[in-house]
Simulated scan of single mutants.
Amino acid sequence: MSTVAATRLVATRELRVKLRDKTFLFSTVFFLLFAILSTVVPALIGSSASSVAVASGNPAEARLRDAGLKVRVADDPERLVRDGDVDAAVLPGPVVVAQEDAPGDVVRALSTEPEVRLLNPDAVNPIAAFLVPFAFALVFFFTSLTFGLQIAQSVTEEKQTRMVEILVAAVPVRALLAGKVLAGGVLALAQVALIAFVTVAGAQLTDGGGGLLPLLAPAMTWFVPFFVFGFVMLASLWAAVGALVNRQEDINGASTPIQLLVMLPFFLVAFLQDNETVMTVMSYVPFSAPTAMPARLFDGDAAAWEPFVSLAVLAVTAVAALLAGARLYEGGLLRTNGRVSWKTAWRDRELQRL
Rank of each mutant, 00 (worst) to 15 (best):
S2T: 12
T12G: 15
F24M: 07
S27F: 14
F30D: 03
A35G: 13
V40T: 06
A62S: 13
R65M: 11
K70V: 14
D83K: 13
D87V: 09
A89K: 00
V95A: 11
R108I: 14
T112L: 11
L118A: 15
D122E: 15
V124K: 14
P126R: 03
P133S: 09
P133F: 03
F142A: 11
S144C: 07
Q160S: 15
V168H: 09
A169R: 06
V171E: 10
A178D: 05
L182D: 02
A183P: 02
T199N: 07
V200W: 07
Q204S: 11
L205R: 03
L212I: 11
L215Y: 11
L216Q: 07
A217W: 10
A217K: 01
P218N: 10
V224A: 00
V228L: 12
V228Y: 06
V228F: 12
F229T: 06
A235V: 01
A239C: 01
V241R: 01
N252E: 12
N252I: 10
A254F: 04
L260R: 05
V262N: 10
A270R: 01
Q273D: 09
D274E: 09
N275D: 15
T277H: 10
S283H: 07
A289D: 05
M293F: 08
A295E: 08
W305E: 11
E306T: 04
V313N: 04
A315R: 06
V319M: 06
A320N: 05
A326S: 14
T336F: 12
W342A: 12
W342I: 15
W346A: 11
D348V: 12
L354N: 14
L354C: 02
